[in-house]
Nucleic acid binder design. Structure first.
Lengths: 210, 210
DNA sequence: TAGATTGTTAATCGATTAACAATC
DNA sequence: TAGATTGTTAATCGATTAACAATC
């Protein structure tokens, strides 16, 4: 399904398409044209058609796009049917907030386990997810390979944990620590969620010109 | 300090410059050239010089950039000296994780208060931040104007809360709910932190071509 | 001074938008 | 059929990179 040479700009719009189409689908809308979708998303019809044409021909002249079909296609492109799995490192407040509130399944992921070092966290479950000692990480991953490791650990250990995850064979790291990670294994893709970058951008946007 | 016509691409690189320069500063580095900085950040020297030249002349021929000075300048551009304030709506696990772990001051913000509806959350403090009832929001903001409202509420009330914040005069909304917000007041800037978009992008990146 | 490095102008590259033949 | 709308090619726009005179 995926094609070569798709720019990152296009890729990062796909989840947004997916979200919008999901909402339309839930509202009972069956079909939509690129111009109507563009209008509701603040994009041009051209851009939407260009984006989708990177991956195939999902529409029909004179009709537009069937929302159910398009949702299914975009889901496939994003890898939601790939059966991805995840482990989470650092069961502090942020880690537990993700475990308890984030809908991993909706994004096509199964969160298998969390890891921490603090004795009071261990051998319990959070929202059904077992919390194990970090010493067990490599053993656990040998038994249960993970597609992705989620980093919600303190800054000071982020680099070391990223290296251990990469060494243990994860394909991606979802990084919530405020650090630039460069795992030794270059095949591992790092996706950053830098809260401070986001807030500082907002700060710029609301600040007066000087 | 801020100039007109600076592209969003440039703006979103500024926090990353700020982070890198902070690390270099802490490591005791005093000056750096655009080519050395570019090498350590994976950017071209040209791009760095172009980016910075949108805002002024911060370097010196033959020398490069003084890191302290540049940090100060970028901080100013981002509005970190503007005395921004914030309130947080929704003191659930994610809201409390932000209150407890996120360093608002480092990004130039003062988090004044949190709001919730659940009786068991009220009239306590989390990491020194008071939790008030949402009914008190407008009264509180009249006394203590906030630059930004942080949304960590359930999806179902996100739109309504965004409208109340906009109506009460915030300049920006930091949106952690998985919804596209369009506050009626168009002067309010919305900055989204869409966890699922981020994870789905990662999913794409680690998925096999089909 | 000579070497290094800036800020800026020009060239290139890539992404977005417009146009339109194909066709449902 | 006639109207609507696609997928794609061409045109435009904007962002990145390269080059270089100015100068510390």
């Amino acid at each position: 399904m995926k094609k070569q040479n798709v720019s990152e700009a296009v890729i990062r719009r796909l989840p947004r398409y997916f979200r919008h189409l999901t909402e339309l689908n839930q509202a009972g809308v069956v079909r939509i044209s690129s111009s109507a979708l563009g209008k509701s998303m603040g994009l041009t019809a051209s851009q939407i058609r260009q984006d989708l044409s990177c991956f195939g021909e999902f529409g029909q002249q004179g009709y537009g796009y069937n929302i159910n079909k398009l949702l299914h296609e975009i889901g496939n492109i994003l890898g939601m049917q790939a059966g991805h799995t995840a482990v989470l490192l650092g069961a502090g407040t942020l880690g537990r907030a993700l475990i308890e509130n984030f809908d991993f399944e909706w994004s096509g992921f199964h969160l298998m386990a969390a890891f921490d070092v603090r004795p009071e966290m261990l051998n319990q479950t959070v929202a059904g997810v077992p919390v194990l000692h970090i010493d067990q990480l490599e053993g656990y991953l040998k038994e249960h390979p993970a597609s992705v490791g989620i980093l919600t650990v303190p800054k000071s250990v982020a680099g070391a944990m990223a290296d251990r995850l990469a060494e243990a064979g994860v394909k991606g790291i979802w990084n919530f620590t405020n650090i630039e990670l460069n795992p030794k294994n270059e095949d591992v893709f790092v996706e950053n969620v830098h809260f401070s970058d986001s807030l500082q951008t907002l700060s710029y946007m609301i600040s007066e010109d000087v």
